[in-house]
Design a binder for these strands. Sequence first.
DNA 1: CGCTACATTGAATCGAGTCAACACGCGTGG
DNA 2: CCACGCGTGTTGACTCGATTCAATGTAGCG
Lengths: 228, 228
Amino acid sequence: MKLTTPDCQTCAARGDSLFCLCTPSETENINEHKIGNFYKKGQIIFHENAHPVCLYCMSSGTVKLSKTSVGGREQILRIAHSGNFLGYRALLTNTPYHFTATALEDTYLCVVPKSEFINLLHNNAKFYEALMALVCKDAEEAENKVAELSFKPVRGRVAEALLLLATAYKSNEISLPREDLASFVGTVKETLIRSIGELRDEKIITIDKRKIKIIDANKLAHISNLYD
Amino acid sequence: MKLTTPDCQTCAARGDSLFCLCTPSETENINEHKIGNFYKKGQIIFHENAHPVCLYCMSSGTVKLSKTSVGGREQILRIAHSGNFLGYRALLTNTPYHFTATALEDTYLCVVPKSEFINLLHNNAKFYEALMALVCKDAEEAENKVAELSFKPVRGRVAEALLLLATAYKSNEISLPREDLASFVGTVKETLIRSIGELRDEKIITIDKRKIKIIDANKLAHISNLYD
DNA sequence: CGCTACATTGAATCGAGTCAACACGCGTGG
DNA sequence: CCACGCGTGTTGACTCGATTCAATGTAGCG
């Protein structure tokens, strides 16, 4: 695992990040002020209710954004990948984080000071617009999730979650601990396991060790759309 | 019921709306280009999947924003009041509405052409920032609702919903059809009725005809927080 | 007065959560 | 090389909250 900080200009995640809207000089500036940071699998990047001091830009790895209940149950709101920003909304509104970010695998991310982020916002209209679009997408996705939780039984939500994750991972294979998959779907481990077991029996997916592979995405989509 | 279009400058909702960030000349301009529209109780303002052509600004009344499932169940995402904007996200992202807006009572709202809205965005940074904050709030609230649906049983969600609505209505009395209240909570009418019946028996609320009055907000908050 | 829409209550059913036991893979240390 | 333990995955049985279906009650209005 590389521990050297990547350059923003040549970072593999650059094309997927909003920083690709920056001018060369802006990029240069961010590159100078950012600090690279490595997070081991399971490590917490920031906590719900903590105060933000910087923007995170994912260079590699996978991160879950989640809320936890007093009962200890976790609801994953989103899974973030390389190129994604983390914590921008808390910075924009100047409020504490309202979810926790945890590395799901070894993750490398760059930390950009709040001041640089704010400067960029004010100087680069395209960047600001893209950020607005991003926040709109967050809102829409969360609202979709609300409807989904309300309308669909676990089976439908599992189907949808698998499709969503496959898109996010850009692969038809999903490798996520059962517990996390359950938290993403909004259920408990045991129920999730029974549900994917059914899908396996129906030959819509295969399960090899922890890896879930989507065989028939159309059927999954159909199961998911049975309700909404 | 007044059917004359209010002036933006003197509209009762002005102080509650983002338009209060406009300069006098901007306000004047919006006022000239807007069209007032009256919606009767139950009337649909815009439909999920329809394409937006304008911004709505509520002058008076109450509007529900909701999604509907194929099974016919409805999930209310938000209840909007005078001063609130409707449909801004669809305009910002240039995408179809992803929820339906319906008048819950006789509602008067002003229709601002998309072009005026976009102009304003580009010319008034404060307005744009406030809009960003608004979208961030939408996202946060939706994410809270996700966690709530996932963590809390109906009783807890009812308690929270009553508190939320009381805040939104700026009153400790809530007058909403049972069906809508249920859709807001994310359950069905019968279950909701049983739940508020319990709260009534515990003297935490009173129910007079359709009107629910909050007697002990602290107990409600406690019930709501038992889980999250 | 009777109609219609909304509210309420009861009984039956079912999906999903909880609890408990067990299986499997993997790394560590004897 | 095997035994052990730990984390994760899986399965079964039980329980319960919430939905559904059906019936009845009540308010408001032409």
